[in-house]
Design a protein around this nucleic acid. Sequence first.
DNA 1: GCTATCTAATTGCATATGCAAATGACAAGA
DNA 2: TCTTGTCATTTGCATATGCAATTAGATAGC
Lengths: 249, 249
Amino acid sequence: MTETRLDAVKLDGAGPVYDQIRRSIRDLVLDGSWPPGTSVPPEHALMEQLGASRMTVHRALVQLAREGLITRRRRSGTIVASPPASHAMLDILSIPDEVRRLGQSYAFEILSRRDGKPSAELAALFELKRTEPVAHLVTLHRSGGQPHVLEERVIHLATVPAAAGERFEDTPPGDWLLKNSLWSEAEHAISAIAAGPREVELLAVTRGEPCLLVERRTWNQGKPVTAARLLYPGGRHRFVGRFGPYGAV
Amino acid sequence: MTETRLDAVKLDGAGPVYDQIRRSIRDLVLDGSWPPGTSVPPEHALMEQLGASRMTVHRALVQLAREGLITRRRRSGTIVASPPASHAMLDILSIPDEVRRLGQSYAFEILSRRDGKPSAELAALFELKRTEPVAHLVTLHRSGGQPHVLEERVIHLATVPAAAGERFEDTPPGDWLLKNSLWSEAEHAISAIAAGPREVELLAVTRGEPCLLVERRTWNQGKPVTAARLLYPGGRHRFVGRFGPYGAV
DNA sequence: GCTATCTAATTGCATATGCAAATGACAAGA
DNA sequence: TCTTGTCATTTGCATATGCAATTAGATAGC
């Protein structure tokens, strides 16, 4: 096992040695070869394996630690860190967490599900190709019994085949994806729209009430993973972020 | 001059030496002692001044460079960098830039201004103390002649006294503050509200139309600098951000 | 079994040293 | 004047070395 992990770290000759080491380990973490909790070989082992000095290996590992990909402790060694659950103003990745952080009970309900190639309407809404099969789910999340957010989501079955067999009985789709898929890039957009007739009923808002629409799409190494439209009743939600001139605080 | 800059870098004995150097220079940059463009003493000079080895000084400077506070070039040396104008999904710091990036002409108009201690109403809106004097400005920004965003802002005159004498004739208040004040921390919140009677007229929207409300407050070393409420017509705006699991991309 | 102690593995930090790469400044030559 | 080439400064990278701090695990003692 240890041998396998050591062999996986390779130099590619491009750029400084410390950066080759850093990128090599980063890729192993990001593509899932070294899942969270995996122990990273100690500096001495990497040093011998790669023919680099300990300080060079050290530099790569220190940088990865500062980027949050690994955790280091003296004597215990280095392990792959768990991805942070939230990210600055994007602390909406897990809706159950979001609700519970507010001290409310959480529940969800799958209102509809349909797998297969998307209809023209759905393809337009999420900018899909008509040919790629997706799971299409509509989920209502409740907070303290009240409607909290209405989620409409497609999951790309080519990228996440396991989703086809998942019933989402205990875990809502967003959370299930966080645990059962990898993502390397995401985009989200926030806008304001008026509640339509369907939302009036499901979200318990009045006709035309302003709602916050969060559209999020994620990819893994260029392949689409999922896309979601989250509709929050406007008056009851605001998204907050803190930052400094040189980055997040 | 060079002497002055050298003397300004000090060790405080707290923690690793490389980090003492890093924090010392960081503070000089953040508090304005070393404005953008200032040249940072070369590694050799810092090394002698501080009694540290070159590699230790180097480590501090490399880290500052990665954080974006300084720019380094061989032979040319190291200079203090200009703060980035935009930041991920917060690329709304400069409204003129935002408008021009969309290829539209930009104009603005100060609708009202009042300096002094805030009214009870204003204090409640911005969570101010009744005793601290502020400048209160309402500004309408236009894009291609059309209303773009309605800005209501208070500037804390105790922190930014120069604002009292500024007419904001050429530069809107937000941009003026970016150039004429320092900030170390900011918070913003996004929510959706319905357009009220005043907005209907000023923003050319229909009654009750959903609008995006961006509330932003900034501080410098704990002291409040400014607070703003930016109201965007909902249908015409969306805020987009891209990021990865470990941070902004 | 339990606890106190010791040992050794592992990371953290700093130094000293040497060479490579980029490039501003200046001098030499056309 | 313009170009070309050389030199010196400054940063970038890697190595070798040594010691400090932390602490998991082994050991000894009760």
